[in-house]
Amino acid sequence: MIMNLTFYNDEATWLHRLDPRTKICGVLLIFVICLCFNHPLFIVGILAGVLAIFTTAKSLKVLWKLRFLLVLLFVFSVVLWPFFIKGKTILLEWHGLEVSRESLLYGLAMGLRLTTFVSAGLLLLATTKNEEITNGLIRLGIPYPVAFALATAIRLAPTFADAGATIVQAQVSRGLDLDSKNIFSRFKRFAPLSIPIFISAMRYTNFLAMALESKGFRPDAPRTSYYEPQTTGRDWLVLGSLMLILAACLYLRLSLHWGIIISGRL
């Protein structure tokens, strides 16, 4: 195996034991909480909270696996946002492009928000088995085929990434230069990579469909579930706390106007 992109981290923490429905709703609540503020300090607070949950779920290493992506998202956001936002305190002006203190801070906030979004999503994937996510989605009223397709997509991402990495190595061995800066050579290397990836993905999915049907699976038929999630008091406690936090955040933002760098924006 060249890459391991499975996010599920098999532990037995409180978070792993929560009902998948609670976790799905919880992550959505965290998303909304993130949207309450656009001041970086406030979002740092939310991110710190998410990281604290990661620690109690013994899953920080999942975050570490994606460190490059997270840093990339953050940096892009921080660098790009300031050019699209106007603020009062101008720090830099150059040929009509201006960067202000507010826009800089807003960019920082957006970078942090994106990081928090991705982290919260990973929290769900790190502590919930694919089958549990499917089960949770169904019990939340999502139609079975949709839930199954979604879970399958999550399941297949690492497989395809793995095949992709092998294909890159195979073509690099033949002399394909992936480091070239030249636009034309970049275009030329598109086919040697994309065609094998596409074909192996097609083969794989077709094969998988055969394997699933051969085991008696049909998307529209009733089936039982080996892991039956149990909703306990803890689930209600988690949801209740998150709702309270959301309410508090809304109050801070809407009534006290806290955590705002640029008003009128999410």
Binding site: N130, E131, Y204, L208, A211, F217, Y226
Partner: peptide, 26 residues
């Protein structure tokens, strides 16, 4: 390519779930 589930136990359970077996029997 036909191993599809998160862990060994669930892989074993997949076909049985399709057969609608109750949990204890599974």
């Amino acid at each position: 390519a036909q191993l599809f589930s998160t862990n060994v136990e669930l892989e074993m359970a997949f076909g049985l779930e399709n057969q609608c077996l109750p949990r204890t029997a599974m």
